[in-house]
Computed example of a mutant assay.
Amino acid sequence: MVNRRTEDSAIESIKNQSSFTKIHEHPQIRINGSYVRATTYYIDCNRIELRYKEVTFWRDSMDVLWWVRGRSRSFKPFVANRIGEIQQKTNPNQWRHVPTKSNPADVASRGTTVESLKVNKMWWNGPEFLMECEERWPVNKIEQGGSVTEQRKYVRSFLNQVGPLNIDDDWRLDPKRYSSWSRLIRIAAYVHRFITNCRSNKNYRVYRRLEHKEIQYAELSIIRKAQQESFPSDIRNLKENGIVGSNSVLSTLTPTVDEDGVLRMTGRLSLVEALPHDVRYPIILPRKHPVTELIVKKYHDLGKHVAGTNHILSLLSERYWIIHNREEIPRL
């Protein structure tokens, strides 16, 4: 259920999904309705250019509301992909809990007659509390969802009991000691897995070959540490104020910190939805840092050491943005 706040509150639409299978047996079905509503809202605002004063999404499923407020990568791919899209198109604070007895969608899903539907005020106008001030709406107390089947197996509360995994505070893999970016990442990934296995119950330990998500996590951890060493004040300003100082070397890049704590650049390409995420929001790399040197060296190797500066820049721009890049690449 979605309502838009104007001078007179109103229900914009009610999305009802029916299934021949009991919905509580398939948590994936619950997230689909929310994904459809978030996508419709995004299209309304960005393509049709409708302007709403305020939009609220109502769900009676605590699982979905908990997922929307969580980290998408903590769940299995089906749910994670949709949670990521929902979080990109809406703000988690827009999602609120509606009691089952006040949910108009249940009127259809539980069966009713045409005659009853004609006179059902909740179906046509929504719950009565929408006509009142927001302070009198139901308390939005989001409790942890009861379904854990959609969580990845390596995400366990056991880790929280031991303590959070934070490699950044005590980094032992010095990039200066490595001549290959790929080798550094793989060793870091194995170190992360070893620590995770030590903190996990033996039934959930992983011994197979490295997965893509483990390599990606290790890579982002190394880059994040390099950024923290080179731009500590800028990252602090972004987290506290949302902007960097006017004298910062990053001021012209419109930087932002993503959900992984990685510093990224935003620009006109961020508006082109057809491009990959890394192209729209390239990772900012500091100049003259060992991590940057290893990454540039990797692309020099891809170019067989004969590619010019422009070609190396075009390859790097698919994911990275180096400060003073045209000076950095010839230097290496």
Rank of each mutant, 00 (worst) to 15 (best):
R264G: 03
E327D: 02
W171D: 08
E150L: 01
K225S: 00
E214G: 03
R236V: 01
Y320R: 00
F78L: 01
E128I: 10
V148P: 00
S248C: 08
L117K: 07
R5I: 15
L210Y: 12
M1H: 14
V64A: 12
C133Q: 15
D168P: 02
V68F: 09
K288I: 01
H24W: 11
N32L: 09
I323W: 04
L294R: 03
V257I: 13
P290V: 00
R73Y: 07
P330N: 03
G70P: 10
K176D: 15
S19H: 07
R224E: 08
E49G: 01
V296S: 15
E293N: 08
C198Y: 08
T113F: 07
T40E: 07
R136K: 15
M1C: 12
E327W: 01
W171F: 13
G84Q: 08
R264K: 13
I31D: 07
I295R: 15
Y41R: 10
V272T: 01
L332E: 03
N120C: 11
R280H: 02
V155L: 06
V279L: 13
K202Q: 08
R136F: 14
I86T: 02
L165P: 00
I323E: 11
E25L: 12
R30C: 07
E211A: 08
V291W: 00
W124Q: 11
T39H: 07
V114Y: 07
K118I: 10
E143K: 14
G84W: 05
T266E: 12
Q227R: 05
I243Q: 10
E85P: 00
S270Y: 05
R156H: 14
K76F: 00
H277N: 06
L294C: 05
H324F: 15
R4P: 01
S74Q: 04
V139N: 04
S246L: 13
I185W: 06
C45F: 01
L210Q: 13
V249H: 00
P286W: 03
F57C: 09
V272A: 01
S317A: 15
K141M: 15
G303R: 13
N125S: 15
T40R: 07
G145C: 13
P175Y: 04
P290Y: 06
N241S: 08
V119F: 11
V191F: 03
A10G: 05
R209V: 05
P99W: 08
R186I: 11
Q216C: 11
I83V: 14
Y207M: 03
S18E: 05
P276Q: 00
W137G: 14
R156C: 07
T252Q: 07
E49C: 06
L250T: 02
Q87F: 07
